[in-house]
Amino acid sequence: MPPQLKTLLPVLAVFICIFLVARHFLIPDSFGKYGHYRANSMDEIAALPAHHIGKAACMDCHDTEAAKLNSDLHSGLTCEVCHGPGWQHMDDPEKNKLSKPGTREFCGKCHDMNPARRTSVIHQIDIKTHNIDRANCIDCHNPHAVWEMKD
């Protein structure tokens, strides 16, 4: 063995050891469990709170509205389509009120005339001309039972 290797090899060995030790502390435990990523991050993402609580949770309190909704054309919709996510409302119903939209603009998001909307899929009206005596859609229509007209 050449004499210079005798001095260089221990230095190299020390470097490799330092690298291995540093690597051990820098790489998280779950890295590489399933692939080239940190497996624990899946649990972290899974632990995030759900904001939309679903129709069943709404029905616990609002059973009359839900029964009416389920009996009519809008039965396929969940409550949160119009009222927005209800997780904070469920924690404190008095403090966190949900929105009750019923304006021409809001209902028009689904029901305004548009050539891209199929008439077989959705009832459409022209929100600019349809019954312009009344300001909002909910002045005539009950959104939970659409053809239950108000006076």
Partner: peptide, 23 residues
Amino acid sequence: CTLCYHRLKKGLNPACFDVCPTG
């Protein structure tokens, strides 16, 4: 998009699938 991974793991549908009015 995580396909609402946090919802899937709780047994819920992803939010966009839940609210789609026409399925």
